[in-house]
Simulated scan of single mutants.
Amino acid sequence: MASYARRILSRMTMANPPSRNASTFAGTRILAARGRPSPPEVIEEEIPTSGISRPLAEVLRELSKRVPESVIKVRVEDGTEVKYVPWHIVNRIMNMQAPEWSGEVRSITYSADGKSVSVIYRVTLYGTDAEIYRESTGTASVDDTSYGDPVQKAEAMAFRRACARLGLGLHLYHEDLA
């Protein structure tokens, strides 16, 4: 299985050779989009394929590293700029830095007036010595379809926040305090 992953990775690397503007995040090379509208690609040099491979403290230390500016997006909500990392990039980083993670939607709840939906999401990390989970919520207006389906938007928000509680991208929540 490991050789299969390396062959696939080798093909990806040949198709997208590293550029001078590649940045490193915890041993992961994240390539800038080079003028293309598609998101940056994340390429791992060695992909763990099975088993719990590291102590939980080491996994948490890797997840707590700053996310490169190249993957951070900005959107405006109620006149305020909000920085975030798209859910698919968070998912990719989790797969590479904590391959033993799991996630699940714990509940989907519509408000009494039916104007908003809230999702509770749980992310669990497994290490050689322990496991830990964090939950968080995401809420979206049912009328707001600017970023897709409201339930999907609330789920993505809850997922990102649960990962932040484990350290991934947490610096984005307190940048202004520094």
Rank of each mutant, 00 (worst) to 15 (best):
K153R: 11
E44Q: 14
A5I: 05
W87V: 13
H171L: 10
S136D: 11
A33V: 09
L177M: 14
R92E: 09
P48E: 03
I93C: 04
D143N: 12
T13C: 06
D149G: 04
C163E: 00
A154L: 03
K65S: 10
I132K: 06
S70V: 12
S10T: 03
R122M: 10
T137K: 06
V85A: 00
P68F: 03
E135I: 07
M1P: 11
S102N: 10
A130S: 15
T128W: 08
H88E: 08
V74Q: 09
A33C: 12
Y4K: 14
A112F: 08
I93L: 15
I93E: 02
R20E: 14
I108R: 08
F159Q: 05
I89H: 00
P48T: 00
G27F: 01
P37V: 08
M96H: 12
R34E: 10
S118G: 04
A2L: 15
A162M: 02
G27H: 04
A178H: 14
D143Y: 10
W101T: 03
D129G: 03
V67S: 04
W87I: 13
G103P: 01
G79R: 01
D113N: 07
R61A: 15
V74N: 08
Y133S: 10
H88T: 09
H171Y: 11
D149T: 02
A26Q: 07
L60N: 02
V142M: 08
M14V: 08
R134V: 03
E155F: 01
I120W: 03
F25C: 15
G79S: 03
I47K: 14
I52P: 00
P99F: 04
I72L: 07
D113A: 07
V82P: 05
D144M: 03
P39F: 06
V67Y: 03
P86F: 05
S141P: 02
N16D: 11
T145D: 09
A2I: 12
V151K: 05
E69D: 14
I47L: 15
L63T: 01
I43V: 13
L177G: 05
S118L: 07
V90Y: 06
A178E: 12
A33Y: 09
G35C: 01
V42Q: 05
I132F: 05
D78S: 13
P86E: 07
G35A: 07
E131M: 12
T80L: 11
A162K: 07
G51D: 00
V105N: 04
R106H: 09
K153C: 07
P18Y: 09
Y147Q: 13
I72A: 06
A22H: 09
V67I: 14
E44L: 15
V76E: 10
G127M: 02
R106D: 12
D144Y: 04
R11D: 08
S70Q: 12
S141Y: 06
D113R: 00
T137I: 00
T80F: 11
S64L: 02
A154G: 00
P68G: 01
V90S: 02
S116G: 06
Y121R: 06
R75V: 08
